[in-house]
Deep mutational scan, measured.
Amino acid sequence: EVDTLELTRQVKEKLAKNGICQRIFGEKVLGLSQGSVSDMLSRPKPWSKLTQKGREPFIRMQLWLSDQL
């Protein structure tokens, strides 16, 4: 189980620290539009309420944070 709230907090922190905009992060890392990324980072759904497809971007965020992506 992933703590989506904590994960998105860490992602936002790393984006800010490295000067990466959400649009680029969305396109290059998540394969999503800036609007989708913005929504996901500001209002993450609980892991238990996400479908497999809904969980994929959060898994990619985890990999990106651990420099595996």
Rank of each mutant, 00 (worst) to 15 (best):
E1N: 11
E1S: 11
E1Q: 04
E1L: 04
V2S: 13
V2N: 08
V2T: 08
V2E: 12
V2Y: 08
D3S: 10
D3G: 05
T4H: 06
T4Y: 02
T4A: 03
T4N: 05
T4K: 08
T4F: 13
L5V: 14
L5T: 14
L5D: 08
E6A: 09
E6G: 09
E6S: 10
E6L: 07
L7T: 10
L7Q: 08
L7Y: 06
L7K: 14
L7P: 09
T8V: 14
T8C: 12
T8F: 08
T8H: 06
R9S: 07
R9C: 06
R9K: 10
R9N: 11
R9L: 07
R9T: 08
R9I: 07
Q10V: 07
V11D: 11
V11K: 10
V11M: 07
V11T: 07
V11L: 04
K12Q: 03
K12A: 03
K12M: 05
K12W: 01
E13K: 09
E13V: 05
E13A: 11
E13I: 08
K14E: 11
K14T: 15
K14W: 10
K14V: 12
K14Q: 13
L15E: 06
A16D: 11
A16L: 09
A16P: 07
A16M: 12
K17Y: 04
N18A: 09
N18H: 13
N18Y: 08
G19R: 14
G19E: 02
G19P: 13
G19I: 02
G19K: 13
I20Y: 07
I20A: 01
I20W: 09
I20C: 04
C21P: 14
C21A: 12
C21R: 10
Q22N: 02
Q22I: 05
Q22R: 11
Q22C: 04
Q22S: 10
Q22T: 08
R23E: 15
R23G: 09
R23V: 07
R23D: 12
I24N: 06
I24E: 15
I24Y: 15
I24R: 10
F25E: 00
F25Y: 01
F25C: 01
F25S: 01
G26Y: 07
G26F: 12
G26P: 05
G26E: 02
E27F: 07
E27Q: 13
E27I: 08
K28P: 01
K28N: 05
K28C: 04
V29Y: 08
V29R: 09
V29A: 03
V29L: 09
V29K: 08
V29T: 04
V29Q: 02
V29C: 09
L30N: 02
L30K: 07
G31C: 04
G31L: 03
G31K: 08
L32D: 03
L32M: 12
L32I: 11
L32R: 07
L32Y: 04
S33Q: 12
S33D: 15
S33E: 04
S33N: 13
S33L: 11
Q34C: 04
Q34H: 14
Q34M: 11
Q34L: 13
Q34S: 12
G35P: 10
S36R: 10
S36W: 11
S36L: 14
V37D: 02
V37S: 05
V37N: 02
V37Y: 04
V37C: 12
S38F: 05
S38N: 14
S38D: 13
D39M: 07
D39L: 05
M40V: 12
M40Q: 04
L41P: 05
L41F: 10
L41E: 02
L41Q: 04
S42Y: 10
R43F: 09
R43I: 03
R43P: 03
R43D: 14
P44I: 09
K45V: 10
K45Y: 04
K45W: 03
K45G: 05
P46T: 10
P46R: 11
W47H: 00
W47E: 00
W47Q: 00
W47T: 01
W47N: 00
W47V: 00
S48D: 14
S48T: 10
S48A: 11
S48I: 05
S48W: 02
S48M: 03
K49N: 07
K49P: 01
K49H: 13
K49L: 13
L50N: 00
L50K: 00
L50C: 02
T51Y: 13
T51E: 02
T51P: 03
T51W: 12
T51I: 13
T51Q: 05
T51V: 09
Q52T: 14
Q52G: 07
Q52M: 09
Q52Y: 11
Q52A: 14
Q52I: 11
K53D: 04
G54M: 13
G54K: 02
G54H: 06
G54A: 15
G54D: 15
R55M: 02
R55N: 01
R55E: 00
R55S: 01
E56V: 07
E56F: 03
E56Y: 05
P57C: 08
P57S: 12
P57Y: 14
P57K: 11
F58K: 00
F58N: 00
F58H: 03
F58S: 00
I59F: 06
I59T: 11
I59C: 04
I59A: 10
R60W: 01
R60G: 04
R60D: 00
R60N: 02
R60E: 01
M61F: 07
Q62D: 01
Q62W: 13
Q62N: 02
Q62S: 10
Q62P: 00
Q62K: 15
L63T: 13
L63N: 13
W64G: 00
W64N: 01
L65D: 00
S66M: 10
S66Q: 13
S66T: 13
S66L: 09
D67G: 13
D67I: 01
D67W: 01
D67E: 13
D67P: 06
D67T: 03
Q68S: 10
Q68K: 15
Q68H: 08
L69M: 13
